[in-house]
Amino acid sequence: MSNIEKLLSQKAFDNEYTKGMIGLVFVGNWIVSRNQQFFKKFDITMQQFNILRILRGQHPKAANINMLKERMLDRMSDVSRLVERLRKADLLERKSCESDRRAVDVKITSKGLQLLKTIEEEVAQLDDVLKKALDPLEIAQLNSLVDKVLAQY
């Protein structure tokens, strides 16, 4: 009996593809839950962290809401709402775009950069799940397999 079958008290799956899909969903949810707990102590969400990292990559240039949406890990996020919450926390600033008044320019603040620096001193903990379970060859194989599945996206 596999670990996923034990964890779900499942006798057997119809086939290996179903087992693989359920295993990926289970592991994905477990990892998201761990990440949510990690970011709570910094008073931000995973999605807000993602936005701050994107903005740091753009720094000192501004980004716009559409670019943030395209680059988010969670494409279902309400980016405008997330940006507003980060603005209220002084982690980013937003202003009307000079070349297109309908668009909004978004930039990370020095406070946002400092928060990222603080978080990244501890963020390696999030990799521990994979580091404990997989050796370097296995993680490379996992990344290759994930890449192969993402080719269907």
Rank of each mutant, 00 (worst) to 15 (best):
M67R: 02
P136E: 01
L82D: 01
M1C: 03
M21C: 11
I4F: 04
D43F: 09
N64T: 10
M1H: 03
K11Y: 03
M72V: 12
I108D: 00
L130P: 02
Q141T: 12
M21V: 12
Q36I: 12
V104T: 12
K132E: 14
Q10R: 02
E122T: 11
E121K: 04
M72E: 02
N66S: 12
R71Q: 08
L130N: 00
R87N: 06
R101H: 10
V146N: 05
G23D: 08
K88E: 09
F38V: 15
D90I: 05
L145H: 05
W30S: 05
K19D: 01
A103Q: 10
Y17A: 02
T118F: 14
T109H: 05
G28D: 06
M21D: 05
A124E: 15
A151Y: 15
P60S: 00
N50F: 13
V83N: 02
M67Q: 08
D135F: 11
D127Y: 10
F42D: 08
L145G: 04
E120R: 01
S99M: 14
I51F: 05
G23M: 14
S9I: 15
D128K: 01
V32G: 06
Q48C: 02
R34K: 08
D43R: 09
Y153L: 13
I119C: 04
F49G: 00
D14S: 12
N29A: 02
R85T: 02
L91P: 00
S33W: 09
S2L: 11
L55F: 13
S77H: 08
E138D: 04
Q125S: 13
T45I: 07
D90C: 09
K88M: 06
V25E: 00
N15P: 10
F38R: 01
Q36Y: 09
K132T: 07
K41D: 14
L24F: 12
R94D: 05
A133S: 07
W30I: 14
E70S: 12
K95I: 12
I31E: 09
P60F: 03
M67P: 07
Q48A: 02
S9D: 12
A89C: 06
Q114I: 13
V83H: 03
A89D: 11
V106L: 06
